[in-house]
Design a protein around this nucleic acid. Structure first.
Lengths: 201, 201, 201, 201
DNA sequence: TATGAATGAGTCTTCATTCAT
DNA sequence: AATGAATGAAGACTCATTCAT
C-alpha cells in the first residue's frame, strides 16, 4: 500500500510526512484530526486514505518510516561511536539538526509516541526493526568516558539532555518558521554547560 | 461554583471524584467521555455540569482538589521530614496508602496530568499553590542521608521508586476490586531492596 | 436500550418509526441515509443514536417492533381463521388497512427486508418470535376452501394478492398524502375479481 | 459510446463484463464499488469510465447486452419450443449451461436486477427489446403439456425451478473456481424429480 | 437539587468521477 | 487507448453541552 507513496514527488512526500508529524506530535493520535492534517499537507481528504487506507495506517507508516530514517542517518554518519562521550553527543546533535531541517517535528513525534495512550493508535505501531531510543542508548553506551573518571553514569546526562531537547523543541516548534539553527544553538550551549560540570565531578 | 459540591453527601462527593480520577487517568482528558464518567459516578449527565460547568471545569477542580488534599495529608502526617531517608520513604508510603484507600486513582491521575497533551485540558489547570511533585522533592531533600554516605543522590532512588509505583499502580488498578494493601505490600518490598543496595554503595 | 424509546410521546415515537419505515423501504438498508431519516422524523442526528446506538440497531428495532405489532394485531382481530377463504382475505385487508393508517410503510418495509442484500443490515435482524410472512401462511392455510372445490391451491391466489398489494403500495406511497382508503379500495376491487374467478375454476 | 468497447480484444471484453456481473450480482447497484470492479477486471479506473461514461452507464450496458445475448442464444438453439415440457426444460438448461461457461454470473445478475431498489441504478435500465423473463414465459407456454394431463399449471413448476436454480447458483458461485458442470448436474437432478412428480399428479 | 432527552458541530471513512500524462 | 493520482461531497457515528421538567 505504501509503496505507491514513494512514487510521488519528493516535495509532496515531505509535505505529507511533515503534516502528520506536526499534527500527531501536538495533539496525540486520537485528537489529531485528518481534516487538519490534509489542510496542513495541502492535499485532499481522499488522497490521505488513497495512500494509507486509514488514519491508523498513516500513523503506523509515519512511525515506521521515521524510525528507519533516523537510525539510517545516525548509523551512516556515526560509524564509530567509541569516541569521547561529549564529542559523540555533539556529533549526534549535528545529525539530528540535519534531520530536523527536513522533518522539523521528527523527534517530537517519536517522543509523543512514547506518551501515546490511545488503544487504536498503539495497536498499529509495529515494533520496528530497531527502536530509535534503544539505538540511542546503544551508541551512547559505546562512548569513551575515560576522561570523566568520576562520572558514574553518563546515562544520566543523556537523559537530562533528552529532556532539555524535548522541552526546547516544544517551545520553538509550536511557532512556525523558527529556523532549526536556533534550536541547535540553544542545545549546543546546554551541552557545553553539562560538559563543564562533568569534568569537575 | 464548586462550593455547592461540598454540601453533597460525602459518599456522593467521593463517587464523583473517583469517577473522574479513574476515567481521566485511563483515557486522558480528550478521550475521557463525560458519558462514561457519569455512568461510573452513578449520577446524571446534568448534575456534572450543574456542579462544574464544563468538562474542563471538572478536570480543573479535580486537579486542584487532589493536589491540595495530597499535600495536606502529607504535611499533617509528616511534620518532620529530617529523618533517615528510607524511614521517610516508608512514612510517605503509609500516607499514600491511606490516600489510595479513599481515592484509588489519586496518583495515576496526578501522573496522567504530567503526560497530558490536550490543549483545552491543560489550559484550565491553574498552577496550584504548591505542585505535588515539587512538594515531594522538597521533603525528600530534607531527609537525613548521613547513613548512606556514599550515596550521591537520593533523588535517583526517589525517581526510580516513582516509576516503580506508577508501573505497579497501572498493573493493579486497571482491574477493579484489588485491595490497596496488595499495592502497598509490593512497593514496600521494592523499597527494602533499594534500601539494602543503598547501604552497600 | 430501546425501552427508553417507549417513554417518548406517542406522536414522536410514531414519527421516528415512520421515518425509518419509509426511508428503509424506499432505499434499502445501505442507501438509507440517517441524515434523511432524522430530517423526515424531525429530530436531531444525535437522538437517533441516543435511542438506537447505530443505524443497524435502529433497523433491527424497527423490524422487531413492526413484526410483533403486525402479528399482534392480526391475532387479536382474527381469532378464528377457519372461515371462508375470501372472507378471511377481506378481514386481513381490514386489519392491514388500520395498520397502515398508523404506519403507512409497514408492509413495504417488511417486503423490503425480504429483498435486503446488505450484509450488515441482515446480520442484525434477529429472527423474531414469529416471522410475519410465515404467520400469514399459517392463518391462510386454516381458511375454509370447501366452497372452491376445484381450487387446488389458494396459496397461489394469496401470493398473487401479495404481489398486487406490494405493487399498488409502491405506486401510491411514493407520493405523500395519499389516504390509505385509496389503497384499500383498489385492493378490495382486485380481491373481488379473484373471488369471482375462483368460483368458476 | 459502447461501440468502441467491442473493438477490444474478446478476452478483455469478457473480463470487463464478468467483473460487472459478479460485483453487481453480489452487492447490488449502490454497494458495488467501481474500485472492486476494476480490480476484478484487471483494468484501470479510468478505462471503465472511458468506455461507459459512468457506473450507471456500465450497469445499463451490462443489462442490455446480457439480455440480448441470452435471448439470442435461447432463440437460435430452441427454434421449436412446442415439444414435451420437460424436454424443453432440459434444452433450456443446456443453453444456460453454455451461457454460464462464458458468463458465470449471467443469471444471478439478471435476477439481482429484479430485486434492485436503488433509484439511480433502476433509472438507467432501458426496457430491452424483450425482457428475458418474459421470453422464458413465452417459450415455456408453447411447450406441449399433453402428457401431463392433470398438471394444471406448468408455470408453477417453472417458477419452482427458477428458485431452485437461483438458490444453487448463489451457493456455488460465491466461491470461485467451481465448474459450471457442478451446477448443471445438480439442477438436472432436481429437474428429474419434478418430472417424476408431475407424471403422478 | 436532579434528570436525561435533545442538539449539532466535528470525526473518520468511502466512492464516483475527473484529468494530466 | 490506458493509467491511477486526485478530488470533495456524503455517510455513519461521537460527544460536550443545554434545557425543560
Amino acid at each position: 500500500m505504501n509503496e505507491k507513496f514513494f512514487d510521488l514527488k519528493k516535495e509532496k512526500q515531505n509535505r505529507m510526512i511533515n503534516a502528520g508529524l506536526r499534527i500527531f506530535s501536538l495533539n496525540g493520535y486520537r485528537h489529531a484530526s485528518t481534516d487538519e492534517i490534509v489542510k496542513e499537507a495541502k492535499i485532499s481528504k481522499g488522497l490521505l486514505f488513497h495512500y494509507f487506507g486509514s488514519k491508523a495506517g498513516y500513523y503506523a507508516f509515519l512511525y515506521d518510516y521515521i524510525s528507519r530514517f533516523t537510525i539510517l542517518e545516525l548509523t551512516s554518519e556515526i560509524r564509530d561511536p567509541s569516541i569521547d562521550y561529549f564529542d559523540l553527543e555533539e556529533k549526534i546533535l549535528t545529525v539530528e539538526s540535519r534531520l530536523m531541517d527536513q522533518y522539523p517535528f521528527i523527534f517530537l513525534f517519536l517522543e509523543s509516541i512514547k506518551l501515546e495512550d490511545d488503544g487504536e493508535g498503539l495497536s498499529v505501531l509495529s515494533e520496528p526493526a530497531k527502536n530509535v531510543f534503544d539505538y540511542y542508548e546503544e551508541i551512547l553506551d559505546q562512548a569513551d568516558i575515560s576522561d570523566y573518571i568520576r562520572l558514574r553514569d553518563t546515562r544520566e546526562i543523556s537523559a537530562l539532555l533528552h529532556y532539555v531537547k524535548i522541552g526546547i523543541m516544544r517551545e520553538l516548534l509550536r511557532d512556525r518558521g523558527i529556523p532549526v539553527s536556533d534550536y541547535t544553538r540553544k542545545i549546543r550551549s546546554h551541552l557545553n554547560v553539562l560538559k563543564h560540570l562533568a569534568r569537575n565531578l
